[in-house]
Design a protein around this nucleic acid. Structure first.
Lengths: 162, 162
DNA sequence: GAAGGGATACTCGGATACGCTATGTCCGAGTCGGACAGG
DNA sequence: CCTGTCCGACTCGGACATAGCGTATCCGAGTATCCCTTC
């Protein structure tokens, strides 16, 4: 089981955009150079976050990306769900109903499959953990990050040839 | 993010083998027909469970598959880990250290990445849920399953041409 | 009747093929802001 | 100086290409059990 790398990218971008809120919007070109990521593909991964109302983007020469809400109002699970989709990792296909083992089952299958129930409960615990953390919490976990980010961003803007 | 279907297959096979412990070992041919699954591929997915000491298999005309331990001693997380691998779903690649944003970071990066920490804690909650459930618990969740399974298995054995 | 050898039914492990999804790239269309020309 | 037009920068969305992994199948080798032959 593997989570796409877009989740790591998206979360780091949200945190960085939170630190640069007063310098937003940040063009995708700067954002990609910031983490040394492929620009086109990063853009493709951020678009679902805009559709989910987490990020905002604008065209034009002063366009770019920014947080669409306050960092306190964006939970980690929202970012993960927007990037990985709403479906659960474990998907019950009801194999218990198929084949020779399913004959004459009676009302037994009216109940939810026990395996499905257990897996679902585990995923709920996982989601609950991620729902309890926000972008603001992540920003607070790296107290030096805000200063470093703003300092480096100023320098890049100043040395830019454009 | 998606879990392979082998997890569902493996768990159902473990539960069924728990109910058929006194009729074990069960050949892969019967197990595949039991759930209407592709025989060769099911075999391939059960092999890691044998390597993990969860299932046992034996060759020969009386060979087949059986639980290697008591159902109470097999946790769901063991089955999942054997089939999906021990790696976590979220893998931190430390993109914070790369690119223009990482310049002059100082001792900030000595600490674990906050994003990585949050994701890891969520996965631990997920594992903890699955570690608290055993194959015996799953068997108990379907009280009618034991009788149905034994009844159908007897019938199949009796009607077999071999 | 006992020992030896072959047939059978199963497992194991590796090799191979296929398809889906994640990853990565490219291009045309649309939009915003600024530059520039004309009144 | 004001207004209208054009241009450049940037985004969006879709189309397309590539790679990796999950899915699926097949085959040869090994082994335990059973049966049959032979003594």
């Amino acid at each position: 089981m593997r989570m796409g790398e877009g989740v790591e990218w998206g979360l780091h971008c949200c945190v960085t955009l939170g630190w640069l809120q007063d310098r937003a919007p940040v063009p995708i070109r700067r954002l990609a150079a910031w983490f040394d990521l492929p620009q086109e593909y990063l853009k493709k991964r951020l678009q679902p976050l805009a559709r989910a109302g987490i990020l905002g983007s604008g065209p034009g020469v002063r366009g770019g990306w920014s947080l669409a809400r306050a960092p306190e109002d964006i939970s980690v699970i929202e970012v993960v769900t927007a990037l990985e989709g709403p479906l659960e990792a474990f998907r019950c296909t009801e194999i218990r109903r198929r084949g020779e083992g399913a004959r004459d089952a009676g009302p037994e299958f009216d109940h939810l499959c026990g395996i499905s129930t257990v897996m679902r409960r585990a995923e709920l615990a996982w989601r609950r953990e991620l729902a309890g953390q926000t972008i603001a919490d992540l920003m607070a976990k790296a107290p030096d990050g805000a200063a470093r980010t703003r300092r480096n961003y100023e320098r890049i803007i100043a040395s830019a040839t454009d």
